[in-house]
Nucleic acid binder design. Structure first.
Lengths: 139, 139
DNA sequence: GCTTGACCTTGCCACGATGGCAAGGTCGAT
DNA sequence: ATCGACCTTGCCATCGTGGCAAGGTCAAGC
């Protein structure tokens, strides 16, 4: 199977397959006489695993760990669960940050008439103090 | 005021101030005889505006628009509100995506014993089909 | 056989926002 | 004069992905 077929079957783009190989996430593997990369069903399975992990937002370095656990029949599920929990915590953190932004902006926008007049609490909110707190007077 | 003071007073790092200047987000402005950038209170005010917008997650290109609205006394608040609404929609979108990841992973993790045994629904979930749907049989 | 189009190869550049480092100039105080 | 804190420019790194370019390969059709 060439890289295009592997990409179609796994849902991982050919570009990314090459990239994952270049950073050592997947093994180089066989080449045809012309230098084309060759993939087996097993390889596609592995690529799907990576693709699924990416869909869940795991960064590649964590996927590297997940892969080693996946291929280690002696793993303990606790190790996997811990990795997952750490990632969930990170997702929660990012969700909290984005939600805080969303809420703050919503609050500002709620006070904005949204008509032809120039008065705008959104711009006023952005212009307000809030950045100079490097030396909070040792309080 | 040198760039370090401007950074302290605005909460925007000196590095970023230079960057914003290099991409034309802020105007080049005065230099001392030695070539040091000089900043006024007005500049600091502008930097704070940018910093606040960044804290709300606005990308720099949108901040460019916000700045032009801010400095345009003839603006209509509707324009500002529309920009804000678009950004809120983007934040919501990202929050939804992250939440979907979080929920999917949580579901997998909930079924994982997290003990010394190798059985792990998380890895099973990642290994499951789900990437090869490029040609959904024209269904 | 030759052409054509789809595929493959490598390699470099781009995004977005930020940090870091290096080599050199400047300023103020001792 | 010297030292430390500051400034300058410029390049590299992140992270994951896409795009483009220039070239090689393969299969199908004429």
């Amino acid at each position: 199977m060439n890289i295009g077929q592997a990409a179609d079957h796994s849902g991982v783009s050919a570009k990314m397959i090459r990239h994952y190989e270049s950073i050592g996430l997947i093994q180089p593997g066989q080449r045809s006489a012309a230098g084309y990369r060759q993939y087996s069903e097993r390889d596609v399975h592995l690529l799907r695993f990576i693709g699924q992990a990416r869909k869940l937002g795991f960064p590649l370095e964590q996927i590297r760990l997940l892969l080693s656990l996946w291929q280690d029949s002696q793993r303990s599920s606790a190790d996997v669960k811990q990795l997952a929990a750490a990632h969930i915590a990170e997702l929660d953190q990012r969700i909290r940050e984005l939600s805080a932004m969303r809420d703050a902006l919503s609050t500002l926008a709620a006070g904005c008439a949204g008509d032809a007049r120039p008065d705008c609490p959104i711009l006023q909110g952005l212009a307000q103090q809030g950045g100079h707190c490097a030396h909070p007077a040792r309080a």
